[in-house]
Write a protein that binds this DNA or RNA. Structure first.
Lengths: 169, 169
DNA sequence: AGTTTATGTCAGCCTTGTTGACATTCCAAG
DNA sequence: CTTGGAATGTCAACAAGGCTGACATAAACT
């Protein structure tokens, strides 16, 4: 089923992909990712946090009340690594960890107002860059952008990604 | 094609960009980048190298005979950091450092055959994923993908990126 | 001759990833 | 009710790869 999608373009020539073009795409990913993280990095730095904190804040905000285990799966790091970050966020009063009501072994994670404020600042910086890029590239491009990115994810991850709010545009 | 993309082409054009959509794009970047680096990471690991080595190999291959300084600009790290990586690559016989002919203070960097072999293995893994993603998404999407990524880079970087072989598709 | 540039290198620090070991809590199956 | 195992937290140790600062050379420039 994955095949046959080509026909969509009226039998158009199906991607002549030279190594050159592919390498160019690879470089585009590399450089764009740098830009993508540059703005939040500056804000984080001013607060004494790193990218790991940003990721935690982002996904806690995304899925209010998520458990630690769920967060581990999404982030793809070890619990020890996440825990270090999480601990400082909790100590600093950005994140609240509540004992689960159904299963009291679990902890449900929430942003405090303070945490929400920082998350908002970080994501606003990032959204602003994304918005600008989208504007510069146009609507057609935006659709293509998402399609390629999604196709590039590992299967397991893509499922999680698609299940995260907003199913399909 | 129906030019102008959407319907509205008037003044404040197109793109209703909800925060939701922007956040979704941000997550797509995050997850896709993970997939993007997953395959090379496995190969690198087997050789006892890390992502930093991959980046060095990639750009030395891209611009044969580049100087250390040039590489520093492209990679955006300190010379100490690059040097650590470069030293092991030279010691292991993957990279050759020749004294500059015009200016003998400079070192020109080249991949040895061994270095070329590894670079090829790494980039082939990455190109394969990129190729698959492109195929799955279609030609339109590919163009859009590159456009958005380029718009997302910092200006300075974008210039370097565009000047790197293959000027514009 | 004196200054600047390109590179290398030593030392030390930080973040964020890893493993392994172990304690605690507490759900759920027997 | 006991117990196995899941979910979580935490301690310790280590590695990669960023960073800064200081200093050494050699070559080029003025």
């Amino acid at each position: 089923m994955a095949e046959g999608s080509n026909s969509a373009m009226g039998g158009e020539n199906l991607l002549f992909l030279t190594d050159e073009q592919l390498r160019k795409g690879i470089e585009a990913m590399f450089f764009a990712y740098r830009g993508f993280t540059a703005d939040p990095d500056r804000i984080l730095d001013a607060h004494g946090y790193g990218r790991a904190h940003h990721r935690a804040l982002h996904f806690i905000n995304r899925t209010h009340g998520t458990t630690v285990n769920n967060l581990l799966n999404i982030l793809g790091v070890t619990k020890q690594s996440l825990n270090r970050v999480l601990r400082t966020l909790i100590e600093d009063g950005l994140v609240e960890s509540r004992v689960g009501r159904k299963d009291r072994r679990e902890r449900n994670l929430f942003l405090t107002e303070k945490g929400d404020t920082l998350e908002r600042a970080l994501s606003e910086a990032q959204r602003e860059r994304m918005r600008a890029a989208y504007r510069a590239a146009g609507p057609q491009a935006v659709a293509g952008f998402r399609q390629v990115l999604e196709a590039m994810m590992d299967d397991e991850i893509r499922r999680q990604y698609l299940n995260m709010r907003d199913r399909r545009t």
